[in-house]
Every structure is written in C-alpha cells, then in structure tokens.
Design a protein around this nucleic acid. Structure first.
Lengths: 111, 111
DNA sequence: AGATCACTGAACCTAAAAGTTCAATGCTGC
DNA sequence: GCAGCATTGAACTTTTAGGTTCAGTGATCT
C-alpha cells in the first residue's frame, strides 16, 4: 500500500472546498493562478498557496510559461486515494453484512 | 453531488494516519476507546478526539456499552468520497488523454 | 529603456488541530 | 456501599492552515 505521507497529503489536499473547486475547474482545461484566483475572490498569493498544496500532493502539475504559471491536473495520485478507499469499502461491506446478520440474530433471541 | 461540508469532513478525517489506522483496525471488528488507544500509544482522551472526528464525518458509529464505548465502522459516507473521486478521475482520464495527444502534436511540430 | 503585468517570497494574523494533564462521572464487582 | 476502571470534559500548549499585505523579480509591450 502507498506510504502514509502520500495519503496524508492527498486526502488533506482534497479536504478543502476551495481546492476541490480548483480541481473541478482544471478538469475543464488548464488555467493560470490569476484565472483561478479571480472566481474564488481570493488574492493571487492565497491561490498560489492552494495550488502549491495540490502540487505537493501530486494532484496538480504546474509550469511557468512566460510571466504566468499554467496549472493542469495530474491524476496519478488520485489512484492512490481511490485504491485506499475502495479497499476498505469492500472490507467494510463484508463487515457490515456480518453485523446485519449479527443484529438479526440478536433480535431473534430477544423474543 | 454531496454537500461541501460533508466532503470536507470525510476527506479531512481521512487525512490523518492515526485515523486511517483506526479505520483499518475497526475493519477487523469493533473496539473500545481503550483498545484503540493502547496500540497507538496515545492517551484515552486523545483517542476519543480522533474517534469523535471520524464519527462527525459519519465514518464510524459508536455506542456506549456499560462503562466502555464500542466503536464500529459506518460506511455510507465512504461512498460519498468515493463518488467524488471517481467522478473526477474519469473526467481527468479523458482530459489527460487529450493532453497526451496535444503534446504528441507539439513534438511533431518541433522537428 | 521604462512601464506594466503576473507571479512569488517574507512576514504576519487568526483560528483550528493534535495532543497533553487533571479532575469529574458513571458502571461493575465485591 | 465502596473501590476501581473506562471514559469524558475542561483547560492549556504547540503546530499547522488559510488567509492577508507589501515589497520584490522577471517577462512583455511600447
């Protein structure tokens, strides 16, 4: 399984609505820091920090182009997050099925 | 799509390795606060807080039983996180395919 | 060259997170 | 009823997050 630090960063990056909005926006195509900052009603500096967080998590890739910085999505880390969740999801489904059976059994006994 | 606050809480809850370990542990069956705190080398109070965060996120369900508190997994929120990720994952795959085509085109032009 | 535009770095502020200690509270077992 | 155990709540400390302002830096356009 993926290293803890990687998952820390990915989930932490996704835990902020502003950053999820950035990802949504980049899903429609690349954008500069300024283009991301404007609709969010945030300073360039503030937006830069969010993009940095996403980049550190491997969710976004950036590149300096002239005096702007192009930001694009970079999806390989998403697979990690997805893998973690779906692994436990399957495991939990089984466990919850087990619990259902257990409670059904208990109810039967109570009578 | 699910409300922002819900996703904030779920992703934020998952962004801590201690809490992911709790979920892993609970995947093997219910446990008390004490049983969770001991292997983590943490105080009961500290562990209680983590469990509270998971419970607020809807990832864990707890119930007072005698003088202990039983903690179990509660998976419906996982689906929300999963749904968000997989939606964008698919979207990104398409977009990245597009980018690959773009770069291939550029390389051709550079020659 | 000089003006301007987009971003960046440093410093700062405020609020929230992660953890602690210490003092209740409320069951359980004798 | 009393001792003891598991959890809880309040208060506190230290880091980290999210955001700002203000002063550079480097590219672009006359």
């Amino acid at each position: 399984m993926v290293h803890d630090v990687v998952l820390d960063r990915v989930f932490s990056a996704l835990s902020d609505a502003t950053r999820r909005a950035i990802i949504t926006r980049l899903g429609e195509g690349p954008a500069t820091i300024g283009e991301l900052a404007e609709p969010a009603g945030m300073t360039l500096t503030g937006m830069k920090k969010h993009v940095q967080v996403l980049e550190d998590a491997g969710l976004v890739v950036t590149e300096k182009v002239g005096r702007s910085r192009q930001c694009r999505i970079g999806a390989e880390r998403l697979d990690d997050a997805m893998a973690w969740i779906s692994f436990y999801q399957r495991l939990w489904e089984r466990r919850l099925d087990g619990l259902d059976a257990y409670f059904t059994l208990q109810k039967g006994r109570e009578k």
